[in-house]
Design a binder for these strands. Structure first.
Lengths: 238, 238
DNA sequence: CGTCAGTTTGAGCGAGCTCAACGTGAGTGG
DNA sequence: CCACTCACGTTGAGCTCGCTCAAACTGACG
């Protein structure tokens, strides 16, 4: 297998293009190796494959190496609530920490590769490497502040503001990975976007059309080109 | 000062009525003492006093000993978003972990007492006491799942469902503290409730009136009596 | 007694939902 | 190669829940 292929299952943390994003900066080379030894690299996931189901025993957290993952809960009426989209270099699965089982489920939105990090061994390792413990606290806290931003958005912002915010967020996360911040493919469906943002599919579709008419975007199905980033940014809540 | 007074500033963790709620069960007596030594007990807070401001350097997390605390963010337009209400035995301030400064602010809704737990010392202690580390991960993860429940509510539930859910949540948290789950005083204003639940004050007020007409509640300003718990629970999303 | 923050109630409006129809493209089988 | 299906996306028309604006009430506190 080509060692540069993003789905490559045998690559090590030290060589992974994403390591600047998912590992703490301050880690020593020998510490990276110790971490590398506990990370399990699964086979590629296809669209629709579950990483884990709700209710499944919590064993691990995960890092996205390639593709895109959707996290969601299902409430007692069977209604799905999308809680986040995870792109390469991002960590997910922290909902299970402190519970015996996963509260959420996670599913692959396209062909993806993830690293599985067994939590018990991670916990143990982080008592020995304090920068790793700090990194973990930090990741979870970032998850909290992310959720709180979503809460603010759901409770205060209009449909247009919500969608502008999502697009600028994805743009920024792509830029962080040295990809284009203005031209990208949305990995999720309109239904997922609507579910995440508390809107119906129809509203999402209408807002995309309106943004195109306003010459903020060029939309071709899932391919997005942001043609007026500043104006889009001004509509978002950040 | 009376050692049973809930605002008493000199009580130790080992004697605190709340310790079953805020400490990990598995802690040994000597470990409790080590924790106790790092906890700082401030003077009582009055209504409107800040525990910490947004932007303030992050030093500590906090446990509520008595009273009630409101956590909130202020976005760039100066609009407030309430992110949570914290009752005795609950931990707050975790938004600052992993950031140099607090993202949120926290304010006292009534006369309250809080324990301040310097985070750096806590972090250090939890490398030594693994059940404390696990407890911390667990607290943060509970904060995440709480936030996600709120997200689901904001994105899927009607005004009536949201308010029914808040009331049953406060009821359950009172019951956990061996207080009445059907008769209690709401520590927060209608405006705070509305802000938290993504509703206007008027809507909150109307729903309370409607619930009273439906004989679910007896409302007298902030005093609430739940007169038909089962029906209220059925309206809530849990 | 006046003031002021918090709450309640009413009347009208509008953003986003519901319901319905139609368009589009990928996959499948004849 | 076309016909068919099925998931997904778009567009339109009408309705509704919760918002906005306005006014009046309550009680705490100087």
């Amino acid at each position: 297998m080509d060692s540069n292929c993003p789905h490559n299952g045998s690559i090590h943390c030290g060589d992974c293009r994403m390591n600047a994003l998912c590992l703490p900066i301050a880690l020593q080379a020998d510490e990276i190796e110790r971490l590398d030894r506990i990370v399990e690299r699964g086979r590629p996931l296809h669209k629709g494959d579950y990483v884990y189901h709700a209710g499944e025993p919590f064993r691990s957290i995960y890092a996205v190496r390639s593709g895109a993952i959707k996290g969601f809960t299902v409430n007692n009426d069977g209604v799905e609530q999308v809680t986040g989209f995870y792109l390469p270099g991002e960590i997910f699965g922290m909902d299970g920490i402190g519970h015996p089982n996963h509260i959420n489920a996670a599913i692959s939105l396209e062909t993806s590769a993830v690293c599985e990090i067994p939590f018990a061994r991670m916990e143990e390792l982080s008592t020995q490497i304090s920068s790793l413990q700090r990194h973990f606290f930090s990741l979870m806290s970032r998850e909290i502040t992310n959720d709180q931003q979503l809460i603010t958005m759901l409770s205060k912002n209009s449909a247009e503001e919500r969608i502008a915010t999502l697009l600028t967020s994805i743009s920024a996360r792509n830029a962080r990975r040295k990809l284009s911040g203005t031209r990208f493919r949305l990995p999720m469906s309109r239904a997922d976007i609507g579910n995440y943002l508390g809107l119906t599919v129809e509203t999402v579709s209408r807002v995309f059309s309106r943004f195109q008419k306003l010459e903020l975007l060029d939309v071709d199905k899932k391919e997005i080109e942001i043609t007026d980033f500043d104006r889009l940014k001004a509509m978002a809540n950040t």
